[in-house]
Design a binder for these strands. Structure first.
Lengths: 356, 356
DNA sequence: TGAGAAAATGTAAGCGCTTACATTTCATCC
DNA sequence: GGATGAAATGTAAGCGCTTACATTTTCTCA
C-alpha cells in the first residue's frame, strides 16, 4: 500500500508520530482491528492482539488524544480550577482528588485562576474546549457566564471547599461561616474582646467572606458590635500576613487576638510577632484556618480549624464520576457537608491580664 | 442547509456544544470564514467579523480543541512534569513559567510524577498524546524510554532545577553539588566536624544525589572521611524531616550540624528540635536548601541555599518557546547555569563549645 | 467605464481516530 | 459435508476543525 508512503512524502513530516494506520500496516491488519485491540482487547483474537501490540511497541505508538476525543466524544479527562498553586492550601485535597480519579482511569487537568473570577471564566472555557468531561471548582463566587457555560454544555461540576444551603448546586465542603464562628467563640470565651481579622480579599471569594461573617456572628452572640471589628484584606501569602499583622498591632488600639483567614496568613503573623518581640499567646493570640502542615511547624503551633482535605478531595472525585456516568439522571446530585474541628495548639491563649 | 439539522436529529445530541458549522450557519457565512475570523481576524472584513463574533457569543461557541489540534497540527500547549505538588518547592518556579507562557498564548498542562521515573514515563507519554508542543522536566534522572519518546517525536524539552555539564541536553538550573558544597564548607568553617544529612531518596533524583555529593566534597576538602557521614533518606515532607532529625539526634553520636536536602525537611527538623528541647543553633545547627517561604517563618529562620526560582521558570519558558519556534534549528539550545547564593538566617551557628 | 489586481469568501480535502455495518472465517452439529 | 451462527476482521463514514485552492466581490486607476 504505497498510499501511506506517498502521504508521508507529500507532507514531508519526517519524524512525526506514527498513526494508527502505520501500526495497522506494520501488523498487517486494518485500522479498526488496531483500535479494538487498544480499546476492547477482548474482541480481538489472541494472535492478532500479539502482533498488533508488537507493532505498537516497535513504533512507539501513542494514540492521538485529540483525534480519539473527536471520534469517541469522550475524553476521560476531568478539570479542576483552583485559586492558587502558590501555597499548599489546596494541594492535599487536590492530590486526593487526583488519586481517586486516576484509579478510575481519568486524567486530571489543573489550572489556577489566581483568585480572579474573570480568569476563572477563561479557564472554564479552555477546559471545556479541551473536552473535560467534568469540572471541580472551588467556592461559589464566579461569573454568571461561567455557570452558563457549564450548564449549556451540560458539564457535570461540583463545588468544593464551601457549602451553600440556599443554592441548587452540588457542593462538597464545610460551612465556612459556622466554622469560623465556632473558633471565634472560643477566642471570646478566653476573655478576648479586642479581636481583629486578617482576611483574603472578600470580593470574589465566598470562603473569605463567610469566615469574616462567622467572626461577626460570634461577636454578636457575645453582645459586641461587629462593626468595630478591624479587618485587613490581603492576598494569601506569608509575607502579606506578616505585614498585615504589623499594621494591626502598631495601630492605636492593639487587638489581643488576631484571627487569620487561613494558616498561611497566620504563619506570617506569628513570625512577625516574634520579630516584633511580642510573645504568642502571652501578649497576643493568633489563630489560623485549614490546618495545613505549616500550622504545626510555626512556633507556637497554630490553633486552627482543621479541614478534612483528603476526604473532601476523594468524595468530590467519586461524586463527579457518578455524575459523569449519569447516575443521577437529571436530578442534581446531593451536596455533602463535612464537619470541621478545632485543632488546639499553642497560639491561642487567655486574654493578657492587663486587658482582662 | 437542512443537512445540519438532520445530523442533530439523527444523533440526538440535544445540548452538545455548538460547532463551527452552527456558527457559520447562524452568521450566514462559510465555516472557513468563521475559522479565519477566529484565527486570523485581519483576513476578514470588518462587517462579517462583527456578525460572526455576534453568532459566536450568542451560541457560546468554544472551538473543540482536539479537532483544532488535529487539523492545525499545533496545540499551543506545553507540558510540565514536576515531582510533586504537595509542597511549595516547585510552585514559584512553575508559576513564573506559566505566566511567561501565557503571555505568549500558550497553555500549560501540569502533572506530577511523585518522584517516580516510571510514573513520569507514563506522563511523558500522556502529554505527548495530548499534543504538547514542548515539555519542561525536572532533573536528569529518568527512564531511557522517556528520552526515546521525546527524541523520536522531536519534542523540544528542557530540564530545569539541575544542570549537567557532561550531557548534551538543554538544561537550565544550577549546580546542586557545588551549591551544597559551598554551604557545607561554611558549616565546616564554623568548626562543625560531626555533620549529618537528611536527604530525599537519591534513587531517581539527581538533585538529591548531587547535594549529598556536595557535602562529601566539602568534607574531603577539610580532610575528613565522607564515608563517616550519616545520611538519612526520606521523602520530602515536614513530618519526615522531623522523624529523621529525631533519629539522628537520638543515635549514639549526635551530630552538631544537620544539613537537610531541602527546606521542607529542614523545617521539620527545626520544629522537632524545639520539641526535643534542643536549642538551634546553640545546641545544634540546621540548614536547608531552596529558600522557599517556609525558610523565613520557622524559628530560628533557616540558613539555606537561595535558588532563583522565578528566574529559572521564566528563562525555561523563553528557551522552550524559542526551541518550539525552531530558532535553534537542529543544534541543541545552549544550557543556562544560574548562580545560587547562601541566605543567612539564624539556624546555623558555631559549633557548641563542648564539641569544639 | 472597464480591465486587472487585491481582498474577501467559499469549497472541499484531509488531520487520526472510533464504530456501525458488512464481510469473512471458523467451529459446531445434524 | 454443508448449513448455521458466533467470532474475527474489514470497510468506510464521520467527529469539528484548518487551509490550499478556486471563486467571487470590491477597489484602483488609466
Amino acid at each position: 500500500m504505497p498510499e501511506e508512503k506517498l502521504r508521508r512524502q507529500r507532507t514531508g513530516r519526517a519524524n512525526s508520530s506514527p498513526t494508527l494506520e502505520d501500526v495497522a500496516q506494520k501488523a498487517g491488519v486494518s485500522t479498526a482491528t488496531v483500535s479494538r485491540c487498544l480499546n476492547a482487547p477482548a474482541r480481538v483474537s489472541e494472535a492478532t492482539r500479539k502482533q498488533v501490540l508488537e507493532a505498537v511497541n516497535q513504533l512507539g505508538y501513542a494514540p492521538n488524544f485529540g483525534a480519539r476525543a473527536l471520534a469517541a466524544k469522550r475524553t476521560d479527562t476531568f478539570g479542576a480550577i483552583i485559586p492558587t498553586m502558590e501555597n499548599a492550601i489546596f494541594a492535599r485535597g487536590l492530590q486526593a482528588f487526583q488519586e481517586e480519579l486516576e484509579q478510575n482511569g481519568i486524567t486530571l487537568l489543573v489550572s489556577s485562576s489566581s483568585y480572579s473570577p474573570q480568569l476563572e471564566e477563561k479557564q472554564v472555557h479552555a477546559l471545556i474546549a479541551r473536552g473535560a468531561d467534568a469540572l471541580l471548582l472551588i467556592g461559589h463566587d464566579r461569573t454568571p457566564k461561567s455557570y452558563d457555560l457549564l450548564e449549556s454544555k451540560g458539564i457535570p461540576h461540583v463545588i468544593a471547599w464551601s457549602i451553600a444551603h440556599d443554592v441548587p448546586r452540588t457542593s462538597i465542603g464545610f460551612d465556612n461561616r459556622n466554622a469560623m464562628k465556632t473558633l471565634a467563640l472560643e477566642v471570646l470565651k478566653l476573655g478576648h474582646r479586642d479581636l481583629a481579622v486578617i482576611s483574603a480579599p472578600r470580593e470574589g471569594n465566598d470562603r473569605a467572606r463567610e469566615r469574616c461573617q462567622g467572626v461577626a456572628d460570634a461577636l454578636i452572640q457575645f453582645g459586641l458590635r461587629p462593626t468595630d471589628l478591624p479587618i485587613i484584606e490581603t492576598p494569601y501569602s506569608i509575607s502579606n500576613g506578616a505585614e498585615a499583622f504589623q499594621t494591626l498591632v502598631s495601630s492605636g488600639n492593639r487587638p489581643t487576638a488576631v484571627l487569620c483567614g487561613n494558616d498561611v496568613l497566620a504563619a506570617g503573623a506569628i513570625s512577625r510577632a516574634r520579630e516584633l518581640g511580642l510573645r504568642v499567646p502571652d501578649d497576643i493570640s493568633i489563630t489560623g484556618f485549614d490546618d495545613i502542615e505549616i500550622a504545626q511547624i510555626v512556633s507556637p503551633g497554630l490553633t486552627t480549624v482543621h479541614v478534612p482535605h483528603r476526604k473532601m478531595g476523594i468524595h468530590a472525585a467519586r461524586l463527579l464520576i457518578a455524575m459523569r456516568n449519569g447516575e443521577y439522571g437529571d436530578a442534581p446530585a446531593e451536596s455533602l457537608e463535612l464537619q470541621v474541628t478545632i485543632t488546639w495548639r499553642g497560639s491561642l491563649g487567655p486574654v493578657p491580664l492587663r486587658n482582662a
